[in-house]
């Protein structure tokens, strides 16, 4: 992206100025997530939703199955890729303690919640009941590391920690039990294509437990 004031070119994924007068500067990333509209509505009934631009022909907006169609578009690969994954495999990318790791989205949907540790940070990767909405958390409360599992047949999704038996919702908030009201810290996860994630994080590892 390019800013009008200085003409600098900015890298979308990192917010870093790559060429132009502001080269080396970086926009601060604002915590956000990528979830289904249904999930978002339930959590934010009073929020606001971007509307289509009425001057844009509706056929310009991409169809609902856009990302799965894009999986078939060939990629010119600029580096060697891990042969375990095809370039357009969808992954959940996480950076913690300056270490990058990719969790194949399909594996996350199957194994959620995934309890892991990355760069010294105890992590929790959770998929919602829709299996498409994925969030990452630091599974630490007041210096105490927690382990989570899914409450069977819960809808909406409820997680339980094995240390206190408290119940947690998909926003990372404890809704019942001894830790009620506590919030585990959400961290940013990126839904990305494997080739793209690898391009920006050449040293990334790949989660492969149970494969």
């Amino acid at each position: 992206m390019r800013d009008e004031e200085t003409g600098t070119w900015w890298q979308q994924v990192s917010g870093e100025a790559i060429v132009g007068p502001l080269k080396g500067q970086r926009l601060r990333s604002v915590l956000h997530d990528e979830i289904t509209f249904k999930m978002w509505k339930q959590e934010q009934p009073r929020g606001r939703v971007l509307k289509p631009d009425p001057t844009v022909d509706a056929k310009n907006y991409v169809p609902a199955d856009w990302d799965t169609r894009m999986e078939k578009v060939p990629v010119r690969i600029a580096q060697d890729l891990d042969p375990k994954l095809s370039p357009r495999t969808l992954v959940v990318g996480v950076v913690a303690g300056n270490v990058a790791k990719a969790y194949p989205s399909e594996v996350v949907a199957k194994q959620s919640p995934i309890v892991d540790e990355l760069g010294g940070v105890p992590l929790l990767i959770v998929a919602g009941n829709d299996r498409k909405s994925v969030r990452g958390f630091e599974r630490v409360i007041d210096g105490r590391v927690l382990e989570f599992f899914k409450k069977k047949d819960s809808s909406p999704l409820v997680l339980v920690d094995s240390q206190t038996g408290s119940e947690w919702d998909f926003t990372g908030k404890a809704i019942s039990g001894p830790l009620t009201g506590k919030q585990i810290k959400q961290i940013f996860v990126l839904n990305d294509y494997w080739f793209d994630w690898k391009n920006y994080h050449p040293k990334t590892s790949v989660y492969d437990a149970g494969l």
Binding site: P45, D53, K132
Partner: peptide
């Protein structure tokens, strides 16, 4: 031409379509 709609009036996307969501100081946008 940027404009926003309240969630219950949205009919131009499906429930299982993805949204980027940002929440700051109690204000939520998709």
């Amino acid at each position: 031409n940027i404009s926003y709609a309240p969630p219950d009036t949205v009919n131009y996307i499906n429930d299982d379509d993805m949204v980027l969501s940002v929440t700051r100081s109690g204000e939520a946008v998709a």
